[in-house]
């Protein structure tokens, strides 16, 4: 591991990691989760979840973050995602994101607790407003934006063209193909939530073509702003390792007596940037090894 600078701290971090192949820097914290737990009555779904993600910078390339959460069904991934998006209030702990409405003080970007709407959320059904056309839906996403009406129209039309949705801008969700719905759902959240987007099992039930569509959407989001952060869950471990630069394994930890503690938590984190596996553009043997290790952890959880 070639770490040339390792100045560390909770928020104003700035250290540089240079890999053999791809160099990158890490700057401010963009997501900080601390001691998060969620319980419904006596039933604790997830507990002791803590992690931090930082803004990644690559030279001569706009690079957003792609974070994957993997784990067996019923381990609390969806509940965790609801907490990350502010749709569910944590029983304990906090989810912090930078507050870009405030100016930097003492070199630090002030943080704020996540609230609903701060982080975009796309569920696996790619839910859209059934009574709005694509254009109307994107217009609605920009309703709180301070830009003028003509600028909004220009922005929407540019996104529609870039994302291959121009031809169907006046169609309703029931008139769209699966791929068009996916792109609209992602775009809608991208326009509304600024930098963050959580996708719950975006590849579930998709055919090869639509998986490629979503992967292409990820690339477009990632390359449009360095702060853009995609957080997704999937049961396709190879896909998670191929796409993400950071992978978290969620599952039930083992008790001292070897039985499972039936509360979801993060069992392991794989920083694929640090491992030199992120942004490779191909799935190598090293990726496969990581996927195998993840599966092994999952099977024990």
């Amino acid at each position: 591991m070639d770490i040339t600078d390792s100045a560390q701290g909770p928020f104003p971090l700035f250290y540089i990691l240079i890999k053999m192949t791809i160099a990158y820097e890490q700057k401010d914290t963009i997501l900080h989760v601390e001691s998060l737990s969620i319980a419904y009555g006596d039933k604790v779904i997830i507990s002791d979840i803590s992690f931090t993600e930082k803004d990644t910078i690559r030279k001569d390339k706009v690079q957003g973050q792609t974070i994957a959460f993997v784990g067996r069904s019923g381990r609390g991934k969806s509940t965790l995602f609801k907490a990350l998006t502010g749709l569910e209030q944590p029983t304990t702990g906090v989810v912090l994101i930078p507050d870009f409405s405030q100016s930097i003080t003492n070199g630090n970007q002030p943080a704020k607790k996540v609230r609903e709407g701060d982080v975009g959320f796309v569920n696996q059904k790619y839910t859209l407003f059934r009574h709005k056309t694509i254009y109307q839906a994107l217009q609605f996403s920009l309703r709180n934006s301070s830009i003028s009406a003509s600028e909004k129209q220009e922005k929407i039309m540019k996104y529609l063209a870039d994302w291959g949705l121009e031809q169907c801008k006046n169609q309703y969700p029931n008139e769209l193909s699966g791929g068009q719905k996916q792109r609209t759902a992602i775009l809608e959240q991208l326009l509304n939530s600024n930098y963050y987007m959580v996708l719950d099992e975006p590849f579930s039930g998709l055919d090869v073509g639509n998986i490629l569509n979503v992967k292409e959407s990820f690339r477009l989001v990632n390359e449009s702003h360095e702060l853009n952060t995609i957080i997704f869950s999937t049961h396709d471990i190879e896909l998670a390792v191929e796409l993400a630069d950071s992978v978290y394994v969620v599952g039930y930890p083992k008790n001292n007596n070897g039985t499972l503690n039936r509360t979801g938590t993060i069992l392991k984190h794989f920083d694929l940037k640090e491992m030199g596996l992120a942004w490779q553009g191909e799935f190598t043997d090293k990726h496969l090894d990581v996927a195998k290790e993840i599966k092994s952890i999952m099977l024990d959880s």
């Binding site: 609801k82 749709l87 609903e116 709407g117 959320f121 709180n144 959240q189």
Partner: peptide
């Protein structure tokens, strides 16, 4: 949830 995630 979709509407809430769009800051409604």
């Amino acid at each position: 949830d979709h509407a809430r995630s769009l800051k409604c």
